[in-house]
């Protein structure tokens, strides 16, 4: 009973094995291919039914329209894998936009100040969400339901609901209207968020901790992981990304408005769940989230091109989301 060995049962970690695993991480995640099939089906259906759908311009359009949802959904992926939810993201976006625009108008009209104020405000809301959830053990559903309302209210209070005009050209170029290597900057920022998300979730030790905390919080605690800190960090990341989305939106519209993107949190959550995250935590992957968000964006775009009335669009969108989740469920 001294040497316990079972050589034939040990997995070998060969190079090709690693590569296959990497591919799995990126492409498949836990839900086999259904997501991609659904996306392709959507593309085919819309291409056949609308002559305008299949064009580079239109795809750039879809990319631009899904930017806000995609950027925030990266953060939401972390939050949902950690078994939490953040309902406050749309309000956080509005508040961060106001903070960015006001900071610029007060301090030198500097785009750096604006960007710092926007990102900082978002991260701060995330920090508060995280601290209230973990330190006071209030379910994040309730905490963020409260901050959804508070952040929106604050955004409206600061200017008495008036929009704030932005005039800094550099700010427009960096976040809204320029392009980088031929890619429109909103899409470039989405890619940045995605890549950071993939690195953090799939390659960084932080990702391991997030999966463990969501998979089994008690076991994570018993393994020496500071579960409160890890959970809070996921909220901070999501808040900061809502701040980034605010910069993109305000740079595109040359102004920050306190009443923008109401209800967008639902699109964000739908994108993450469509992308294969489990609402029970412990499962999910970033590229899935991107596709989830693209499916929602493509739906929005395609239905408009088909001339579907907007109330009917809502009904169809909702039905397709439920159907897709039902299909991809294991």
């Amino acid at each position: 009973m001294t040497e316990l060995t079972a050589p034939n049962l040990v997995a070998s970690s060969t190079r090709s094995d690693r590569r296959r695993k990497l591919l799995q991480n990126l492409l498949r995640g836990e839900r086999p291919y259904m997501l991609y099939i659904a996306f392709v089906v959507l593309l085919v259906v819309f291409s056949l039914s609308s002559p305008w759908f299949l064009s580079v311009d239109n795809f750039l359009n879809i990319g631009r329209q899904t930017t806000l949802v995609s950027i925030i959904a990266v953060g939401m992926t972390f939050v949902i894998i950690a078994r939490q939810i953040d309902l406050s993201v749309a309000s956080t976006l509005a508040l961060s936009g106001m903070a960015a625009a006001l900071a610029m108008s007060q301090i030198n009209n500097s785009w750096i100040v604006g960007a710092a104020a926007g990102l900082g405000t978002g991260a701060l809301v995330g920090l508060l969400n995280g601290i209230l959830t973990t330190q006071l053990s209030i379910p994040s559903f309730l905490v963020t339901l409260g901050s959804l309302s508070m952040a929106r209210g604050l955004a409206m209070m600061v200017t008495n609901t008036k929009p704030v005009i932005i005039t800094n050209e550099t700010y427009f170029a960096i976040f809204g209207e320029g392009s980088f290597l031929g890619i429109p900057v909103p899409i470039a920022w989405t890619l940045v968020a995605m890549i950071v998300g993939i690195l953090l979730l799939h390659y960084n030790v932080f990702g391991r901790r997030i999966y463990a905390v969501g998979g089994n919080p008690t076991a994570a605690l018993y393994s020496g992981i500071n579960t409160k800190w890890v959970t809070t960090a996921a909220f901070v990341l999501t808040g900061a990304l809502a701040g980034l989305a605010a910069l993109v939106l305000s740079a595109r519209s040359h102004a920050a408005r306190p009443d923008v993107v109401q209800g967008m949190e639902l699109d964000v959550i739908a994108a993450v769940i469509l992308g294969g995250c489990s609402l029970f935590g412990g499962r999910g992957y970033i590229l899935g989230t991107l596709f989830g968000s693209l499916i929602i964006g493509t739906l929005n775009n395609g239905l408009v091109l088909l001339g579907v009335s907007s109330p009917l669009q809502l009904v169809i969108k909702g039905a397709i989301i439920v159907a897709a989740v039902a299909f991809t469920k294991r």
Partner: peptide
């Protein structure tokens, strides 16, 4: 409840308490 993340692999579970050992500049 306390020992394992049942839906994760053996590898993930075994490395769980040793995550700091496998971190180089934050990368796993």
């Amino acid at each position: 409840v306390q020992g394992l993340v049942l839906d994760h692999s053996i590898e993930r579970n075994i490395t769980l308490p040793r995550i700091p050992h496998f971190s180089r500049w934050g990368f796993m």
